[in-house]
Design a protein around this nucleic acid. Structure first.
Lengths: 198, 198, 198, 198
DNA sequence: GATGAATGAGATTTCATTCAT
DNA sequence: AATGAATGAAATCTCATTCAT
């Protein structure tokens, strides 16, 4: 049975990292979780760190492709942002362990973060969406698109973090509420009276 | 005055954690940075972890007090949020290393699970501000205040992260732009045409 | 013809051992050098050690036979020693990698303790030549033939080592000089005035 | 009791390397032999390899100094060579474990050998002695001094090797015989009739 | 014959922490 | 208070060898 051991090990590492954190996870734990000898791990991956790197890269590549797909639909900008929010937030219900690992480790690995251009590209994509919204007149000028993209991404990530840390409720209904809240807040604003627009 | 060396070590640990991350920092690095023998560290602190805990508690308490101070001024809610954003973002220029450590290590560290209680209080304060704004009619209903507080916090944190990682410009002027962008985006919204408010 | 691959592996191992030394060479290196899967190696050889053993035995046997051939010619002893020196030293130009391995690994390897019996035979042959020279009156008495054989062998080996390590020049002309130097020095001596012989 | 643990470890490593060979010796063996925790080894030495390197360098430095001392006495060249031979050969009785390690490992560590300029300097010293003998007329011309120094050194090393491998007798009397044999053979030659000198 | 995935014993090294001085 | 030698648990990684295909 030629089950793909490489994939087996990779998925095991996601579960173990999610459970114990990267630094606290031992290579032996991962091998045990995968049901293979620990030596095999080094047949497929150069090091423990390469596992984490692979998880990062795989996920971000996928995420980026999806975002680009959404971008190319040419929806109104608000709708594009909503779809992006939906994709990111629903990852929590689809692959919670991966989200756990990313949320907990990504920020703490300055080394990794730099190597992974995908993250930067995600910001760039968000920035494009916002800038395009401004050019079309749907979004107002005067908001810096670069900072805005960070704000949007930070909002998404913090909600994921809240779920990971168990600080926020996360039923399916909650996920929908979170999605709507982000879009309404960032696009429509908190204020009840519309501000005077220049 | 024995507090001297203790403080020396603590400040050294902030710099080292900021530079290399908690897990990657060795006790010897901190001692070297402080210019003392590594044994001395254990005279003042129980363990390496206690250092991180101390950094967190010192800063977080201060931050929390400042936020509560702002809260008690009874400004309009939008103005309160602006002041909170200003305090947090300006900390970057004043004590960037501490910000680095808090952003990277503390908020999402399983080490400090017990500290989550104190982190929670920050979210609770933000939530109060938003809820109060809704009750006074300044903010519209229909936005979940709990999620909104996470969004606000996440926006702040991501901009700090952008600065930490060198992805965002951080001159004094930029800090002001960031502050304004956050408040405008979250309170007034991205849209150019004010939506119909129920 | 299955001997093909066997020979391929054997020759590859000579090159790899010569380049990196026995202990530092990995079985995978040898397989790669030979262009075969490393598993195949175990089809032809019991272990990594058997490779070294095989190299040794092949070469040493050949060398020993040649020396014995020279011995049986019944030349004057000085001429016999010259021919032995010539054979050994010229091997460097013909098969430098094998010489490298023999010089570096085999002669002083505890792995091949059992092979010392065969090494011993080389010394015994040299000893016989010297002793015979003494009996015929060509060489003087008073020089211990056993020690003398080691001195002769050591002289040869060190020059080979010098070539292996790049410390000595090794053009064809140099090889001839080396050969002459050894014979002159060991047979005629360094002194300009002949000592009084008892 | 401030016994020098560094020295303790170094000496233990000599014994262990002598007994089992460098590659076969485990760091734990050395620590056990020294009666310390294996971690301490890394307090004093960067790695297992640095131990071997230190042994090499210490011994060669000592040896080189001694040779230079002998050189500066300005004895007749034959006498200088005799004294050098005596120093080198007597090392076997004085510090047999060190000799064992050097004889067995030195040739097999191409890496180390290059780093240790002392070896080359020893050859240079021998070369100087021989050349000086030629210039003074004590030694005849026509023998290449560089090759001659290798021959001399090789003769010494092979006799040490014979002792290490148990192939040669090594009573005090034997050591004296070896010393005399080397000098007689290399200076006076094997021949009973003095050759015609040009 | 030939492959290379799989194994696992075992090696080196790191580093937080202790403690005698 | 201050030092840094000493400890040893624990972690990562290597690599000769086996064996199913």
């Amino acid at each position: 049975m030629p089950e793909d051991k490489r994939q087996l090990i990779l998925e095991a590492s996601v579960r173990v990292f999610a459970r114990k954190g990267y630094h606290t996870s031992r290579v032996g734990d991962i091998a045990e979780e995968a049901g293979v000898a620990h030596g095999l791990l080094y047949h497929y991956f150069k090091s423990k760190e390469e596992l984490l790197e692979t998880i990062f890269r795989n996920t971000w590549t996928l995420m980026l492709d999806t975002i680009r797909g959404v971008e190319s639909l040419d929806d109104p900008s608000r709708e594009t942002l909503r779809k992006v929010a939906a994709i990111v937030l629903r990852a929590w219900r689809d692959t919670p362990d991966i989200v756990r690992v990313l949320v907990r480790e990504v920020t703490r690995s300055p080394h990794l973060q730099q190597e992974i251009g995908e993250i930067e590209q995600a910001f760039a994509a968000l920035e494009r969406v916002i800038r395009k919204g401004q050019e079309s007149g749907e979004f107002r000028d005067g908001v810096d698109p670069r900072f805005a993209s960070f704000i949007f991404y930070g909002a998404l990530e913090e909600i994921l973090t809240g779920w990971v840390m168990g600080q926020l409720p996360d039923t399916e209904e909650d996920v929908r509420i979170a999605e709507r809240t982000i879009v309404e807040m960032l696009c429509d604003g908190l204020l009840s009276a519309a501000p005077v627009r220049a």
